[in-house]
Design a protein around this nucleic acid. Structure first.
Lengths: 194, 194
DNA sequence: CGCCGAGTTGAACTGAATCAAGAAACGTGG
DNA sequence: CCACGTTTCTTGATTCAGTTCAACTCGGCG
């Protein structure tokens, strides 16, 4: 598992991490497996852990007063999953995180992250790159949700994250796009026979 | 102008920046004023500068094929304004940025930012905090756009950024929320007489 | 084999967009 | 400092994209 992680770090930072430096990473991250539908975070509790997804698929979502789920983020291999706000501030989270498929994770805490940032400049760099990319991706998503029609949103998703379409059931894709499953089903039909 | 900036840095990082360290900031940031409606960034060009807003109000927006503007971000005093993606990667931007009011800015380049990060650990910390906060705010906005009705979105804005309502004309607020000006006008009427 | 969740399809409904016209507010130049 | 043109905001009537509700199909799992 750690070798996947190591390869990922080398790629993202365009560096080669030395053995002795990588030892700190192994200390900071613990292996964890999750079964499909198992919860990583429950609404109301503090998100003590952040996970690097080695294998599997997860989602982060809120539940409104009417009991409807709204998926804010998906995660698959080589993505991170945590409620950033709760993880850093140690405040209770408004979100749920659960496994959509069986998962293999590397999990860490915010203290371990802070320690690792001190010990490994490469990790600091990694975090900066991730933050920046996450922010940019969020901006794109915001633009898409305020600007586009249902069909355009779906097309955008197809282009940006085609893998999602095979990994997540349609009702979840619909929730992610802010649509009903029925609407997505109809749109998909239209789009596919073009 | 620089004293406002200095105070801001002290506040955000919960530190007191020494005189000699702050000298680097003065080198890295240049004063700039902008008249209302003047452009800071035109779609298609590289966003070479990032601005700290000392005074005034700005917006970042895209224009779709039908010529409609979609406001992705607002900025007022003590906010930063740039197209993060274009600024960092030096790629052509898909956005426009202009002044909604006359502005006083402190502007910098990505090289100057990189240099300052090396010279001032405090600035590095500042950037990390900003990235994180921006990301968290983006998540909230995404959640709100996919989960809420027009009225709920407006209420959320009223609670989160009440200052925006006085600073930006309603048609811009509408665009920011992904609504038409007409819809916002009607919703406002409803909400206010409750 | 049977059940259950996921996806599809149809019909009726509704929240928000569009189109259009007027009122109010704003700022610019004479 | 007023007058005129421009932009912003409101209001009404109509349309439409997407939701809701409901029934049915399909595929997988126990």
């Amino acid at each position: 598992m750690y070798d996947v992680f190591r390869k990922y770090i080398n790629e993202v930072t365009s560096s080669i991490i030395p053995d002795d430096e990588f030892k700190h990473y192994e200390e900071a991250f613990a292996k964890k497996t999750m079964k499909k539908k198992q919860f990583f975070l429950h609404e109301g509790s503090v998100c003590k852990y952040a996970a690097f997804i080695v294998k599997g698929a997860m989602r982060l979502y809120s539940i409104d007063e009417k009991g409807h789920e709204h998926i804010v983020r998906f995660g698959i291999e080589s993505w991170w999953m945590t409620d950033r706000e709760s993880f850093q501030m140690l405040t209770p989270s408004r979100y749920n995180i659960d496994a959509v498929e069986d998962c293999e994770l590397l999990v860490t805490t915010s203290e371990a992250v802070a320690r690792l940032k001190d010990r490994s400049p490469l990790f600091l760099k990694l975090m900066q790159i991730l933050d920046q990319n996450s922010y940019i991706a969020s901006q794109h998503r915001i633009e898409s949700t305020i600007s586009y029609t249902a069909e355009e949103k779906f097309m955008q998703l197809m282009n940006t994250y085609p893998a999602f379409l095979h990994r997540f059931p349609q009702n979840m894709i619909a929730s992610y796009l802010g649509l009903t499953p029925e609407t997505l089903s109809r749109i998909r039909k239209q789009v596919l026979l073009k």
